[in-house]
Design a protein around this nucleic acid. Structure first.
Lengths: 238, 238
DNA sequence: CGGTTGTTTGAACTGATTCAATCTGTGTGG
DNA sequence: CCACACAGATTGAATCAGTTCAAACAACCG
């Protein structure tokens, strides 16, 4: 039995500035970006933060928590298409955004008007390059997710997501447990299956001793074999 | 029976410059980009143009033809993750690229060294904004493909791809036929299924009079219902 | 003409869904 | 502190969409 996490992820850790710098942005650019006029908001997990078609033209920086971008098909079946961890951002879209935004855990967000953001980008090549770089990283993740939903069986899909989570949350999977922020329904919405099946997959993974569950924590007693099962190659995450 | 297309797509049409301008880039920036030192190459459909891990750090502009980016899962099953039509580009990656590139039809490519490209971007905010814009467009397509493979049944997936192809190839589906450049195996590799099933889906779509096949051409006698079946909303393509 | 690539069809099988019921942990209000 | 409501996790049975395997057929190419 797992229940919702109400504490923000990694809130006690690094500042937004630290995280940006750690991702390779130079300090001056980071300060320039963070000193732009902004407002800070909290997104909670009970309802969507942005619906489809909301035309908020703004940069959303994640300070803490965990955001998802999601879409739905014709029959209203939900597909989560991207995750945003602390230190990551959702870039502004000129057009109406065709995806919604939903917080998995309560998330603290720093929001910057897109015009201010674009203005700074115009005059700061280093920041501009950084934005291109992280965008390509998110693109690489989207491609890997396409392989996941398109080509891997449901077991490998869940295993792959767990591997990606471990790396993106910067834990050491051989010695540390993953604090899983998702419900099984949300994992189903990421991996393109049903929550019922996610449950069976988890039981199977645990039966094979590839994971060990302890409340919301997931241990990896056999990280090597889990990676192999998932055909997980971390290089797409850089 | 359909066989490979050997003629480049849209070769007789617009120049690369025309296509860039039509996509919203200003003329000066387009000239700046196209006048960068470059070499022109031909990619043919018989073998991959770039394998995984090839670290060619370069911008690839598609003059004619049709390119795919593809990845494979652990068991070597192929998933096509993106298409690049004439006028579109594959951006340089600093790291080794984690996808391969394969031409669907013989393609003429203009290749620019990434350093020259980045240099121009640094000094040309308009071009920089344009690159961000088209990148977000490709991201939106990747997200839609995720919904496709994750949430739609195989019939809707194929129908959705056909709709997207019609729009991206700029045909008028109510009055014009789509010249389908793909084999059924390639459609399977895009939509995450088997070529056998793609074949059955095509028969079914034709039986329902949602498409009509005529050699390599596909007519859309009932565009409205096809779109509905695919839950195709063109806005993600802008 | 023979080789190759792509398409089509059938039959058997299976992984995952669907539907439905039950169980378990958490929070809330009396 | 208990009773209750609720969200999430778990399990079983029936069903089905899509795969797999295998074979035949069609079009093109040299």
């Amino acid at each position: 039995m797992t229940t919702r996490i109400t504490l923000p992820l990694r809130s006690g850790g690094l500042s937004l500035r630290d995280m940006l710098v750690q991702d390779g942005l130079d300090e001056e650019s980071a300060d320039l970006l963070l000193d732009l006029p902004n407002r800070v908001m909290t997104a909670d997990q009970r309802r969507p933060f942005r619906e489809f078609g909301s035309s908020r033209d703004e940069l959303i920086l994640v300070r803490s928590g965990l955001l998802t971008k999601y879409k739905t098909d014709g029959q209203g079946r939900r597909q989560i298409v991207a995750l945003r961890f602390p230190g990551e951002a959702i870039l502004p879209r000129e057009t109406e955004s065709e995806y919604g935004i939903h917080a998995i855990t309560e998330s603290e967000l720093q929001i910057v008007d897109s015009h201010d953001f674009e203005e700074v980008l115009d005059h700061n090549p280093a920041l501009s390059r950084h934005v291109r770089r992280i965008t390509l990283r998110h693109m690489a993740i989207a491609y890997e997710w396409l392989v996941n939903t398109g080509r891997r069986d449901t077991t490998a899909r869940v295993a792959h997501l767990l591997c990606e989570m471990a790396v993106r949350m910067r834990i050491d999977p051989e010695h540390e447990a993953l604090l899983n922020p998702f419900t099984q329904l949300q994992i189903a919405d990421i991996t393109g299956q049903t929550s019922v099946n996610v449950n069976r997959v988890f039981s199977a993974l645990e039966r094979e001793a590839l994971i060990k569950r302890d409340g919301r924590h997931i241990h990896f007693p056999n990280w090597m074999d889990l990676r192999r099962l998932a055909s997980f190659q971390a290089d797409y995450l850089n």
